[in-house]
Design a protein around this nucleic acid. Structure first.
Lengths: 152, 152
DNA sequence: GGTGAAACTATTCGCAG
DNA sequence: CTGCGAATAGTTTCACC
């Protein structure tokens, strides 16, 4: 992972459908050289996937919520992973420090759908209680972060 | 937006670098037909971007947090948007129902960097207090949702 | 929405630093 | 080990039906 790799990644984050030749002009490399680096980054797990950012509303998912999960003492992260992945409405789940044990990001078609998903989540045996924050408006939602780490 | 558009989108979410011909075989359409639909979806704002999912750790961002923002009474969503976009560490920001007024998703290089970002955020004039949840582990983190809305 | 042709890319070589 | 240039295979994109 050198500086050129970083720039290739930044370029692919900006547009995943760019040609290798185009990336090459940006980073001053030939297309085959870029491809070799991208293949290496993919094999090494640095690049996980090429994906498409879709307007959630256009696709029918208009309701979103963050739910804090309070769990029984003996709940493992592995249990949480398995449980949360069962629910298709879960788009993100994290164990966190603070009062709650986990934070779950839900996306649903509407309030009714969200309520159903929430009830299913609350029915998990290790969940003792939940606290929901319904998203009223999305102010910022960067698909991925452009890598410029040394900003501190 | 018909069923074929949905399937094209699902396919592009799974792999944004697929050829139009490949998508065409999945949805039983010719490559030019697929391109026309993709162009239309892009122009209509349904498809926002083609991007790359990168392992945040590999790129140097190892620390993540969700911060609940408590604001003064007269704070508008527009103010929040402007303020949160100023900070490069903010990867997501939402106004929410519940105790807090907003939820901010931060990503930083390390704890020190996160602390700095948090202090800068707390220095915003409309912020009265904050409550942080540091992410201990990422259980689920779907880059985008595969559109299968009618699951309720 | 399909077809076919032209322009452009991707990908695989051999070869050089 | 990494990058380059050339040749082949495949893709995008266009006009037209």
């Amino acid at each position: 992972m050198d500086d050129i790799d970083q720039r290739i990644i930044a370029s692919l984050i900006a547009d995943a459908r760019q040609s290798y030749a185009e990336i090459g002009t940006r980073v001053s490399l030939s297309a085959p050289a870029v491809k070799r680096r991208v293949d290496r980054l993919r094999a090494g797990g640095v690049i996980r996937a090429f994906t498409t950012v879709v307007d959630p509303a256009a696709v029918g998912w208009t309701t979103e919520a963050f739910v804090e999960l309070f769990c029984t003492g003996r709940t493992t992260p592995a249990q949480l992973t398995v449980a949360t992945r069962r629910h298709p409405e879960v788009v993100g789940a994290y164990t966190v420090s603070g009062e709650a044990d986990a934070l779950v990001h839900l996306r649903a078609a509407d309030i009714t759908h969200l309520e159903q998903a929430l009830e299913r989540l609350r029915a998990e045996p290790f969940v003792t209680s939940t606290r929901s924050m319904i998203v009223l408006s999305r102010l910022v939602d960067s698909p991925t972060v452009i890598p410029t780490p040394t900003a501190g």
